[in-house]
Design a protein around this nucleic acid. Structure first.
Lengths: 204, 204
DNA sequence: CGTTGTACTAACTAATCGTTCAATTAACAG
DNA sequence: CTGTTAATTGAACGATTAGTTAGTACAACG
């Protein structure tokens, strides 16, 4: 991990936005350079090639990501409260960086492509572990049903908000929202629903 | 919708597989032609250009899709049973055509790109409507909690299996499955879990 | 047999895009 | 100022790829 410089960060910011919106292959070096306000040759001064730039961008992303949500449920002892917190934290993380779900889903979809970056898939998978532990704790405490696979349940919980954002065009049809981004109030309402949905599904 | 011919269908089959795995931009005309066993210029005999081919492939997909899952819950009167049937139908549909979720998610992600095809997003959104109706029926009948938004709940239900498939690399990390496709038994087990999860979340 | 239309192909064109490189400017130490 | 290194650029190269064109094979039909 090389030292961050202002220009280098501008390039990473630009590539994050464009890769999220358009994907790896549809995003050109010149587009990124233009968005970052620099000459396209400069990207090769800071990064070896397009793929390296992409992976550097994902690495920077992972650092801030894994901690952000997992930390939020670290101190929580009550499993029910932990699940609600998790959903809320997921929603706030995404609201703060709306491009995140698209970036992650694209990476998962392109996992077997040449430019893929295993660490992200692994990080996403590992991000589910504390959630599964929380559910197991609830089962041991007698609050949650024991006939539920904690791993499956963890997937069910994260899937809701992920899909909600990524399937925005379809969700907009159903909710009759406009074509722009989904209003933050609606997002928070859905996050409360998702937490509630999971807690009710798990509780005895 | 032009008359289907064997060669035309071969081309559509090949493009479906390749677009699902690699996305629109990463898939070349020659690749599709090679997979279909024909010369690349022949694609321009049957289709105007790459984008038209892509849209034709999606149109063919939608026809068989919307009916397939929606029909399955058409005759069902018991809402609880309907939700379980929906999850099972979703799983069987995907098991029969494993490329479906990736194709749909890619299209949703690329919705604002040039090659996008609104009809699919609309079809996916509309596919949720009968599910929402089922939940409303359950609420009226007094079986389901009334403090749940039926639209939100419909999203929660479909999201589970969608994410389960699309996030395969991350799911594999959590479940400690290998790198290949997830075993059908595991898929069906998750589908049962998803139906159960939803029913328990909704029931009073 | 000649004509006509359909299915199909090899070879080419034009444009795009990742990448390189020589040259220019900015930063700054002595 | 001067020399040295780091940061930045314009212009070009080479590879890839969507799309075109001109033509061939062949069946149907008169």
């Amino acid at each position: 991990m090389p030292d961050p410089t202002p220009t280098r960060d501008q390039i990473l910011d630009a590539s994050e936005a464009l890769f999220a919106r358009q994907g790896f292959r549809s995003t050109t070096i010149k587009e990124i350079a233009s968005e970052a306000g620099v000459n396209s040759a400069l990207l090769y001064y800071y990064f070896e090639d397009k793929e390296t730039l992409y992976k550097a961008m994902l690495s920077r992303l992972i650092e801030g990501l894994v901690s952000s949500i997992a930390d939020r449920i670290q101190g929580v002892t009550d499993p029910e409260e932990g699940i609600r917190q998790f959903a809320a934290a997921q929603a706030e993380t995404i609201l703060a960086r709306p491009l995140l779900p698209r970036l992650i889903l694209r990476e998962l979809l392109d996992h077997d492509a040449r430019h893929a970056h295993e660490p992200l898939s692994i990080a996403v998978g590992r991000g589910l572990v504390p959630l599964a532990h929380l559910i197991e704790a609830g089962q041991r405490a007698g609050n949650f049903r024991r006939d539920v696979n904690p791993h499956f349940a963890a997937i069910s919980i994260v899937s809701q908000l992920m899909y909600f954002f990524v399937a925005r065009p379809a969700v907009a049809v159903l909710l009759d929202t406009g074509s722009g981004p989904i209003p933050p109030d609606t997002v928070r309402a859905f996050a409360r629903h998702a937490g509630d949905f999971a807690v009710k599904a798990l509780s005895i």
